[in-house]
């Protein structure tokens, strides 16, 4: 197991390094922070001075080496736009993203798996057909359009949920979170549902196909022949066997939600990190974009690692050497 972890660490550092070179060079080629920041009344001299102060007047290689040596010191740099440490910017927005992502994933699991198992077990029922239809629709609706429909339905017509923003927050260990009071939670619901719809559909389909496969296995028939109750057969024998792909996908999807909920965060103006990424790309704020994507790479590596470990726990046949 130890060698497995070490090998993983080695691979990830190379990955992060490649990532940083790509993003750094990409941002350098595409946009110029001075051009974006300088107002229309900046003289040529003002622009040059600004470039000096931001450190973007030096050659790309020098800038990159400075960046690497700063990271070695634990300094991810200072945002060009906000002139504040990048890590602060990301960390103060992370909780907002995390709580919505976790809520959305939970909705996906709690609603998706039972629906999937139900439709896997009852192939001919009407409910199964409606579930199948709904998941197809849910799969296909573009995210931003679905978001606007949700706002139209819940905020404009029914007026039951707020259309945007984060609402009141409660401090939990000094971190402001929304889910501990009703106002904050009601603001969370629409963005979470918007993210969850796709997840619910996916989990439903995954667990349905898993169920259909496992249901006809010999051990299921045997368990039935032994007279084990239906609920126990589903819990002990079916569920455990369909969970493997679900765990993998859920891990990756959680990562995706944390990293790239950009559209949902923009439409609901939810102040999370996805919106930060988008704004930073718009403003040519390279330090933020680079640090963000490095952080995201690290997160995916970690999630994959955790998923691998969970595999071993769920399926005793899998062992890492």
């Amino acid at each position: 197991m130890l060698s497995f972890i070490l090998r993983r660490l080695g691979q990830s550092s190379v990955l992060v390094l490649i990532m940083s070179v790509l993003v750094f060079a990409g941002m350098y080629v595409v946009s110029d922070p001075v051009a974006v920041l300088a107002g229309d009344d900046f003289t040529e001299e003002d622009r040059q001075a600004l470039a000096r102060e931001l450190g973007v007047d030096k050659p790309l290689i020098t800038q990159y080496l400075v960046f690497l040596s700063n990271i070695a010191k634990g300094d991810f740099g200072v945002s060009f736009v906000y002139n504040r440490p990048v890590l602060d910017l990301i960390l103060e927005r992370l909780p907002a993203t995390l709580e919505v992502a976790v809520l959305a994933i939970s909705m996906g699991l709690i609603l998706g798996i039972p629906m999937g198992i139900y439709s896997g077990l009852n192939r001919e029922k009407k409910a199964t057909k409606s579930i199948s239809f709904l998941t197809t629709v849910g799969y296909s609706i573009p995210n931003f359009w679905q978001a606007l429909l949700l706002i139209l339905l819940c905020s404009v017509w029914l007026k039951i949920l707020p259309a945007s923003g984060r609402g009141d927050t409660t401090d939990l260990f000094g971190i402001p979170v929304s889910f501990l009071n009703w106002d904050g939670f009601s603001h969370m619901l629409l963005p979470a549902v918007n993210l969850a719809i796709y997840k619910i559909c996916m989990q439903t389909r995954l667990s349905r196909s898993g169920t259909q496969e496992v249901m006809y296995q010999d051990y299921m028939t045997f368990a039935r022949a032994k007279g084990i109750s239906k609920m126990r057969r589903i819990r002990r024998h079916l569920l455990r066997n369909i969970l493997l792909p679900i765990v993998t996908i859920t891990g990756l999807e959680l990562g995706g939600l944390i990293a790239f909920s950009t559209v949902t965060e923009t439409v609901f103006s939810w102040p999370g990190i996805g919106k930060l990424l988008l704004d930073s790309i718009h403003h040519a704020d390279r330090p933020v974009v680079v640090a963000y994507l490095i952080g995201i790479t690290l997160m995916f590596v970690t999630i994959n690692f955790v998923v691998d470990v969970l595999y071993a726990l769920l399926d005793p046949r899998i062992r890492y050497k």
């Binding site: 931003f144 706002i151 139209l152 905020s155 404009v156 007026k159 259309a163 945007s164 609901f268 103006s269």
Partner: peptide, 15 residues
Amino acid sequence: ISNAGARLAGLLAGD
């Protein structure tokens, strides 16, 4: 709110 559609919805919803 940077998204124009969401901004308008906010107005119509009374936010």
